[in-house]
Simulated scan of single mutants.
Amino acid sequence: MYHPYFRGKQFELITIREMAALLAEKNFVPVIEPVRESLGSLKKTLDAVSEAGGSAIVIVNPYHGDHQENGSSITGLLQEDFGDDESISAGILLRNGMTVEEVMACYQQHVDHSPVLIHAGFTEPKALSVELADSMSNLTNIFVEDHAKLLYRKHFDRSNRILVRDGFKRQRNADYVEMEEFSDLNVTYTELGMAGFGDFLMVGDAYTEGGGPAYAVAIHLTFIDPEKDDVMYIYHFVSDTKDTPTDPAGKFGQALAKLIAKLDSGTSHILETKAIQEFRALHEKGHFPGLGYVKKLSMKHHIETLADYLG
């Protein structure tokens, strides 16, 4: 049903591990694009997903990060450590410039790992659908919406189809408005003929290797508004200090104070998740855990919110 798309950085993988039980319980299937050369943390994460009784899709030909030129070590990991594990699927990323022949060669190489096709810029859907005709009914196709419009998706309408939308409009932290719409796919995906939906959480599809010093600190939190047809929105709680790269702890304190004030107003629609309880505890202690940890809490809150909404 829900397919959160993660790039395999440290805190993304930790998020999946810590949420493995809930992901499994709700049949949420994370898509992981490994971007770090070392695969130890990825293996640990997949072990946690498998032990919890969940499923995951691992992209074997990443577009970003250290495996951009050669994903053979990811393939090796799947074959050696998860060869008999039906819960771990091979994801094949279909980008601009790939030929049908290249897609099919990768598909055949990973046929023992229930390959899932992730459409993100590929330009020959009709020809590919002809090649896959015999296996279409057993195939899952994931479409990144910005790259795969309605006509494109129609070529794969006999398959299990998932639509992924980037609801996070990334900009400089200092420039975020307090609140904006994130996505309505949680409500509309079946109307669009999809079996499920996904997003890039509050990280977004745009990939960066690591930010510079934060002139402003922002906490991004999603919520579902029952008064607006259950559309998902996102708050951006931004620090008041925005003109210096120093004192991230102080800026986090400012952003967190705004978050707590909104929660305590009783009008926020923010679900009181375990992640929110942890934000409250950080506020009470006056503790700054680091920006990566803050992003992890926001991602966990997002997953908990959708888990609650989808029952």
Rank of each mutant, 00 (worst) to 15 (best):
H67N: 06
L39D: 02
S41D: 12
G65N: 06
E80N: 13
T45Q: 05
S55A: 14
S38V: 03
N61E: 04
L78V: 00
L42Q: 02
L39I: 04
S38C: 08
G40R: 08
S50F: 14
L78W: 00
P34E: 05
V60P: 13
G54C: 12
E37N: 09
K44Y: 12
Q79P: 09
G65T: 06
V60C: 09
G54T: 07
S50T: 15
F82E: 03
F82M: 11
P62F: 04
P34S: 11
A48P: 05
N61K: 06
N61G: 07
A52E: 03
S38E: 06
P62C: 08
G40A: 09
V35R: 04
S38Q: 09
Y63E: 14
T75V: 01
S50L: 15
A56M: 12
S41H: 13
G40Y: 07
K43I: 14
H67G: 10
T75Q: 10
G65E: 06
Q68L: 14
G71V: 00
S73W: 00
Y63N: 10
N70P: 05
F82Q: 05
T75G: 13
S38W: 00
G71R: 03
H67S: 09
N70G: 01
V49C: 12
H64F: 12
S41F: 14
P62A: 06
A52Y: 08
K44I: 04
T45A: 12
E80D: 14
S72D: 11
D47F: 11
E80R: 13
L77C: 03
L42K: 01
V58M: 10
K43S: 13
L78A: 01
Q68K: 14
D81W: 02
R36L: 14
S50G: 13
G40M: 04
P62Y: 01
S55P: 07
G76N: 08
K43R: 13
E37P: 05
A48W: 01
E80W: 02
L46R: 02
Q68Y: 06
A48M: 03
Y63L: 15
N70E: 02
S55N: 07
S72P: 07
